[in-house]
Each structure stands twice: as structure tokens, then as C-alpha cells.
Design a protein around this nucleic acid. Structure first.
Length: 183
DNA sequence: AGGCAATCTAATG
DNA sequence: CATTAGATTGCCT
């Protein structure tokens, strides 16, 4: 039984605040929309970031990140919620794609080496999309920096999610605030 | 420029 | 165990 400690971090994002879970190993989950209790084990109580050391550290870095005082989060990640190809892809993404950089779905698939060569170009890319879509550790693992070969790509959470993705990429200087990236 | 088929993983009944 | 859905791509018309 892993000790997931959930708490809420307020952000300037269109979705308001994020919900984050930490364990003894590091950050295990981070979801944009607090209303959706994705992966939230029943019976878990929200901790008070001010009263918990780990939560406070995470909340502080998130605050710095959103305020523009910090570009890359320096927090340990607990990969226990991921497995198999998902873990491979997400870890590749986490270590390879930094601030202000983006990678295409196909590119990430290729880089991760989790897929056999010779497959049609679109197949692994779609899988990467699925994986990123169920990315349990948003923001820390830069799921929002994964874009389509042709345009911006999509994002979970519908229109709200897209707003978040655009917000983040704009803030990282990848997108021009005034222009659409879809060319 | 717009439409279509191929292919992979994770989640659910 | 089988079926469904999903944040894609490249080629053809």
C-alpha cells in the first residue's frame, strides 16, 4: 500500500488549481483538473500543503514555475503509477524534453525506442498520444510539450485541456501569444 | 486541401 | 479474453 498524499496547488491556469500526490519516493501524480478525481484512491484525505514538508516543497516549486521564477521543476518522480511502454515513453520525455522545447508524437516514439522500427509512421505516434493522454504526472513530465507533426496536437480534458496546453506552451515561448501555431 | 486506412496500448465489460 | 476508444501519420484523389 503506497502512501499517497494528495493536496491541491493553486495555479494561474484556466482550470484553476491542480491536484498533486506525493509519496516517500517523490511526486506520483499531478492532474490539472481538481474536479476529476482521476486515480484518487477512495478514502484519501487532502493534505494541507502548509502542514506537510514534502507537499510544501512541491507546492513551492510549482508556484515558482507558474510565476516564471523557475523553468524546470527539480523534483523526484515516483514512477510506480506507470508501467511497461508507458513508463519508458514518459521517462524518455521527462529526461529529454526541457523548457521551451517540443517533440512530435512520432519523434518521441522513435526516441524512446519502445517501438519496433519499420512500423508505419503513424502507429507508434498514436500510441504515444494515448500514453501522454493518460499521463499521470502532468507538468512534471512535460506532456504538454508533445505536439503533432502537423500542428499543435490535442490534449486531454477537452477544450479546457487545450487551453491549458496552449497556456503552458505560450508561457514557455514555444507559441506566439498572438498567433495560432497551426500554421 | 480534404479524406481514408493502418497500427499500438491501455481500459473496460 | 475480446472489444472500444484515443492528444497521429502519410498517402491518395
Amino acid at each position: 500500500m503506497m502512501e499517497l498524499e494528495w493536496f491541491t496547488v493553486s495555479t494561474p491556469l484556466p482550470t484553476g488549481s491542480m491536484r498533486v500526490a506525493v509519496t516517500a519516493q517523490g511526486v506520483a501524480a499531478a492532474a490539472f483538473n481538481p474536479r476529476e478525481s482521476v486515480g484518487l484512491p477512495p478514502g484519501t484525505e487532502l493534505a494541507d500543503p502548509a502542514g506537510d514538508r514534502r507537499a510544501a516543497a512541491v507546492a513551492a516549486q510549482f508556484a515558482d514555475y507558474f510565476a516564471g521564477r523557475r523553468q524546470d521543476l527539480d523534483l523526484p518522480v515516483d514512477w510506480r503509477l506507470t508501467s511497461g511502454v508507458q513508463r519508458t515513453v514518459l521517462r524518455t520525455l521527462h529526461r529529454s524534453v526541457g523548457w521551451g522545447r517540443t517533440i512530435t508524437y512520432g519523434g518521441l516514439a522513435d526516441l524512446s525506442g519502445a517501438f519496433e522500427p519499420g512500423l508505419p509512421a503513424g502507429a507508434p505516434a498514436r500510441t504515444v498520444g494515448s500514453i501522454a493522454g493518460s499521463c499521470p504526472i502532468s507538468l512534471l513530465v512535460p506532456c504538454h510539450r508533445v505536439v503533432a507533426a502537423d500542428g499543435l496536437g490535442g490534449f486531454g480534458g477537452g477544450a479546457e485541456g487545450m487551453a491549458v496546453k496552449r497556456w503552458l506552451l505560450t508561457r514557455e515561448g514555444v507559441l506566439d501569444p498572438e498567433l495560432d501555431w497551426t500554421g
